[in-house]
Amino acid sequence: MEGQEVKLLGARFSIFAHRVEWVLKLKGIEYEVVEEDLTNKSPLLLNYNPIYKKVPVLLHHGNAIAESLVIIEYIDDTWKQNPIFPQDPYERATVRFWSKFVEEKVTDVIRRAMFLEGEQQEEEVKQAQDALLVLEGELMKGKKKFFGGDMIGVLDIVLGWITIWLGAVEEAACFKVLDPCKYPCIGKWMERFVELPVIKANSPPKDQLVPFFQKFRELGLALAAKK
């Protein structure tokens, strides 16, 4: 029916767009990807996300939903099969808390570190390592296969980018956040996560990510030097 098709405005190497794709695939939802060039943003993107002007944006029933965590919850509320969020209100609140923790203490911190050097970079890397130790403890508590239990849930999806993207970022920016010996539970979790068919079939190869992040970092450092 017209107006009910699902479209995703995304970008090939965006961790945030891939999160949404993983959930769409897990739910078995048919969708179309509209690939965005983030160096030359389309009128479509600027029209549907005029506030942040970034991907991902989900288009459904003619409505636009922006921000990956918001989109994931919208998808889970709209399509009930293969739930990503727990049904219990307390458990839902708990995974929202930890999802916010991952975004602020891991994702945002590592993204900042990518555009820093020397002591400033080391400080951000240490923050990310401390946050990963906290998450290591959460996995150890229940001796869980995934943060969602026996099946992946929203927190696995939110942190899932570290399984592929983090190694590429580390190589591109010449720092090391994740030592599997220091984080054995996270290391095993990563192995399980990347072997899931949906994840394996819908993630970019690392050899393409490294040059992308090298150029991305060089551009960011050049822009910072001009200020």
Rank of each mutant, 00 (worst) to 15 (best):
T78C: 07
L133I: 10
D207C: 12
K100A: 12
C185M: 12
I65G: 03
A225L: 12
E103H: 03
T78A: 13
T39C: 09
W98D: 15
K200P: 02
L59A: 00
G153D: 08
F213Q: 07
C185F: 11
F13D: 04
K54W: 06
S42F: 03
G28V: 02
F147Q: 03
V158Q: 04
N40Q: 14
A201T: 00
S68V: 05
E171R: 15
S68T: 07
L196H: 08
F175Y: 08
F97H: 13
I71L: 11
D207V: 13
E191S: 04
E124H: 11
L133D: 06
I65N: 02
Q208T: 10
A222C: 02
A172L: 02
V55A: 11
G167Y: 15
V198P: 03
K143I: 03
E123C: 05
I164G: 04
C181N: 13
W22L: 14
E73M: 05
V109K: 03
F147P: 04
Q127I: 12
I164C: 08
F213R: 05
N49G: 03
N82E: 14
G153P: 06
L178F: 15
L223W: 05
Y183M: 10
A93G: 14
D108K: 02
F16N: 07
S14E: 14
W161A: 07
F97D: 08
